[in-house]
Amino acid sequence: MFDKAIALVQRQLADPAGYSADVGEHVDTQVKIKALVDRLTWARDRSLEAIQLANAGNVPAAIEKWRLIIPNYFPAYG
């Protein structure tokens, strides 16, 4: 999912609701695009770490990784 977002934020993306030509028109400089790509890359890397931890049976550590990405969604483990 994050890989797809990383690719999509780097180009014009039509508004599916039809309100504007580009839902990302506010990301209008290379500096802003790079910052967004960097954040998405960081989130992708944390999610891959979380999956690896869960697959290894370390669910508490996996949940902590997910909480870094989505802090208000995952409750504390245990």
Score class of each variant (00 low, 15 high):
Ala14Gly: 05
Ile70Cys: 11
Ser47Asn: 12
Ile63Phe: 12
Leu8Pro: 03
Leu13Phe: 09
Val27Asn: 06
Gly18Ser: 01
Val23Gly: 04
Thr29Lys: 08
Asp38Tyr: 00
Pro71Cys: 12
Lys65Trp: 02
Ile6Trp: 04
Ala76Lys: 14
Gly57Pro: 05
Thr29Phe: 10
Arg46Trp: 01
Ile70Asn: 12
Leu53Asp: 03
Asp22Ser: 08
Tyr19Gly: 11
Ala14Glu: 08
Gly18Phe: 00
Asp15Gly: 00
Tyr73Phe: 14
Ala21Thr: 15
Pro71Tyr: 07
Tyr73Ser: 13
Phe2Leu: 10
Ser20Val: 14
Ala35Leu: 04
Glu64Gly: 02
Met1Val: 13
Ala14Ser: 13
Ala43Glu: 10
Lys65Tyr: 04
Asp38Ile: 04
Ala5Ile: 04
Ala14Phe: 08
Asp45Glu: 11
Val37Phe: 02
Ile63Tyr: 07
Asp38Ser: 06
Leu68Met: 15
Leu68Ser: 08
Gly24Leu: 15
Thr41Ala: 13
Pro16Gln: 11
Asn72Met: 12
Ala76Pro: 08
Val31Leu: 11
Asp15Tyr: 03
Phe74Asp: 07
Ala43Arg: 06
His26Gly: 13
Asp28Ile: 13
Thr29Ala: 11
Phe2Trp: 08
Pro16Glu: 10
Leu36His: 03
Thr29Pro: 08
Gly24Lys: 07
Ala61Gly: 05
Ala17Arg: 14
Ala76Cys: 02
Asp15Pro: 01
Ala56Lys: 11
Ile63Pro: 01
Pro71Val: 06
Val37Leu: 04
Pro75Gly: 05
Met1Cys: 14
Ala21Lys: 15
Tyr77Cys: 10
Gly24Glu: 05
Val23Ile: 15
Val9Glu: 00
Val23Gln: 07
Val37Gln: 03
Val37Arg: 06
Leu40Trp: 00
Asn58Phe: 05
Asn55Leu: 13
Arg46Pro: 00
Leu40Asn: 00
Ser47Cys: 14
Tyr19Cys: 06
Ala54Gly: 14
Ile51Cys: 05
